[in-house]
Simulated assay, not measured.
Amino acid sequence: MRLPCVIRLVNKNQPKGFIFENVSGLASPKNRDNLELILNELANTGYCVKWKVLHAYDFGLPQNRDRVFIVGIRRDIERCQEYKFPKPLNIHPKVLDILDELKNINFVEKVKLDANTLFKGVIPPSRTRFQKDDELNDFFIFSDLRNGHTTIHSWDIINTSDREKMICLTLLKYRRSKKYGDKDGNPLSFEDFREIITDIEINELNKLLEKGIFRLTSDHKYEFVNSKNMTGINNIYRIILPTAEIFPTLTATGSKDHIATVSIHASHPQEYKNLFLEKIYQPQKYIPITAKHACKLQGFPLNFEYHKKDEVAKKQFGNAVPVPVVEYVAKELLRVLDI
């Protein structure tokens, strides 16, 4: 339901109170004017209105889901200004704690590492609150466009020589250079490669075409087959380790995220990556997200009945509000309303 429709319904029906939820992007700087407009419109209908970004992780769910919550209480109610958003519960189960398939996996504290070992001295600015700067990631991303310490490339899972790996990493490094084009990712010609790797031969590039790692563009330049960031490789974008604190945001459109069914531990990034390939990826010790998983990650009760078709149910859960979050938001609303 669109927000203007919701505002009209509130204005028409004048409930004692209401709770709205929307994506966290509504509170971002570029959308802040829109948020203020919504708040003002709701206030003009006769309500004391408050808002806050709340995260599912802070209410006992291992899911990376933050949302804007807007609470309104009719202004003629004596205590309408008393509403306070709930504080974090400080209960943080890991993914393995809520999924039945992972119950027998033991958690082992990760080894602390220095930034030079993990990031060669330069910590990426894109790291989230759930990615520690002194620990190995709890997930592996399948992408030919990244090169983090837990990135799996197509040349990691296709039989390639060290020389071929070096050629692939060359394209990865230079494809974003403005020297080769104005796009965020630019294919390289044989001549471009020759400037960087002076002894490269055309047959080496063609071999990577044969292996399905490179493709030729219409202007006869070389680009990765997997050249879109979120498409992943072999229908996998991420594999989350069971010991992870957090699972990526569930969405209505689904995802290519999977969960590993065994755990690994290492004290060095390359060892970690090798173990992942050997112990998890190659023997296929991972499972896709099911509706049952989504139900638990959203905090629904164990006896909750959802759609029999898994894909339909996952879409519904992806659109849902995390139950513990709205429960605590609603409890405070009921307290203020004395209901």
Rank of each mutant, 00 (worst) to 15 (best):
S161L: 15
I239M: 07
T150K: 02
F190M: 02
G185I: 03
K179N: 04
I167P: 00
T198D: 11
T251M: 11
S177Y: 11
I240T: 01
F139S: 12
E195W: 07
I202S: 11
I196T: 06
S143C: 03
L145R: 03
L171Q: 00
L205P: 01
L208S: 02
K211W: 07
I233G: 02
T249P: 05
D156S: 09
E201V: 02
D257G: 10
I197A: 02
D192S: 09
I200R: 13
E164D: 11
V225T: 10
G148S: 13
S161H: 08
I196H: 06
I167C: 01
Q131M: 13
I236E: 14
G185C: 08
H258F: 13
A244C: 05
R215M: 06
A244P: 00
N235T: 05
P248S: 08
L172C: 07
L241R: 07
K211Q: 12
N234W: 10
N147I: 02
D192V: 04
L250G: 04
G232Q: 07
D134Y: 15
E204K: 14
D192M: 01
D162C: 09
R238N: 14
D144M: 02
D133W: 03
A252Q: 13
N186I: 00
H220E: 02
A266R: 00
I157W: 10
N137G: 08
L208Y: 06
Y180A: 01
F224D: 00
I196K: 06
M230L: 13
